[in-house]
Amino acid sequence: MILNSIILQTATRILIALLLLLSIWLMIRGHNLPGGGFIGGLVGACACALYTISYGVKKAREALRLEPRIMIGLGLTLAFLSGLISLFLGDPFLTGQWIKIYIFGTLVKIGSPMFFDIGVYFVVIGVTLAMIFALEELEFDYQPSSEADK
């Protein structure tokens, strides 16, 4: 399903950048303010879905570069690995571990839950896009022949 509308395509080009930025911003700030990996992932998925509708699935795949299924795997792995960190430090699986570092004189707290959240982010985008792409690529047209459909 491509809507082939120039208005939509033009708007998408600007919107997608904003939406993706928004999704990343939502994910990063999520620990302290409304947002998080799940919400950020959904916004990101919406952005990609918008692109898919405007330009078609082939272009969307090219722009994404990463197969959604691989994205799911990466996300799951990242989330899992972030949980392993605490195991090596003697805490139960998935216990949050934090360190403080200074970047350009600003205090930044980095913790394993952040990586966990990034994992969630990728899984959500991957899952949604895997479904949307698969639906878009469906080579099947309805034929009202069988009895059950009548």
Partner: peptide
């Protein structure tokens, strides 16, 4: 280490 309780619960 987070102020957003919903997110802290989740992650």
């Amino acid at each position: 280490k987070g102020h957003n309780i919903v997110n802290v619960i989740l992650v």
